[in-house]
Amino acid sequence: MNRFEYERAGTLAEAIGAEGAFLAGGTNLLDLMKIGVQAPARLVDISRLPLTEIEPVEGGLRIGAMVRNSTLARDPQVLAKYPALAEALLSGASAQLRNAASTGGNVMQATRCSYYQDPLSPCNRRNPGSGCGALGGETRNHAVLGWTEGCIATHPSDMCVALAAYDAVVEISGPEGARSVAMAEFHPLPDAQGAGDAPLAAGEIITHIRLPDPGAMARHARYVKLRERTSFAFAIVSAAAALAVEDGRITQARLALGGVAARPWRCRTAEAALLGQPATIETFTRAAELALEGASPSGANEAKIRLARKIAIRALERAAAGTPERLPALPASLFAGDDNG
């Protein structure tokens, strides 16, 4: 690990514009520093900033960037209105990591592309212009949507997939002032040369995540995650879905996919196609086709396209069936015991 300076930001004002890498829970940043992928000259510790509230606000909920993943997942307001967010959070990492991981850090966590994590490999994301080491390599975890030859990485977060489905907005403060960006558009898609622009300008910090009220979708929302083992594994593919159904017809629909692109993939065409339709497997299957329209393998990962379609259907089916009173003991799992169809 390189030598670095450490400073603790006492106030948000001190953090904004600080030169260096923000240290929140450290569960991602420190790992990357240890393997030499990131070597910041200075760490700005934001873990004591008072961004730890989960407050109801006009038309929704506002979550501080330093709210820990485990706190957020157990929050009664989240469990009541945004159960797919709780389920997504609880399906991620391990209890120990969730206790440390912050909301802002989760959004900003780096891709798990193993070539990004290997300083000896070329990587446009880590070292712009060096090429993409993953192309032609081990690409089982890589993108099938929105990728270019510049970068085929996926964003690994579960939380962000649910947030994208809920129309969450990322609140950012920087030296130039405050701004907001939709979660679904926050992470840039790659361009022909590489990973695309950084989501945050120098000195900018995520302060909050704002969630609009889900209205009638509150109790028809689920997150489903396919993974290599039953727990403690990143998604191969995942999906968040929320529906409102009146008189057998879908009146509101949200669908976002995880593990398929450099951002949580909001499926707006599929959502539009769901509206006014009966909540049936046929409807969901058509929507899933639309969700994966334009998908193509970035390597030996064609199977992911099929899997993503299936996980979208499963999430919609579970959402239509309604969110259970209590989240299953294995959140987001295919073995949660609630697919009795």
Partner: peptide, 20 residues
């Protein structure tokens, strides 16, 4: 191509967890 490992850590090299 390089012969280097792509999953030489516990996040990438999976062993069973309790839930398995």
């Amino acid at each position: 191509r390089t012969g280097r490992f792509v999953n030489n850590d516990f996040a990438g090299y999976h062993v069973p967890v309790n839930a398995d």
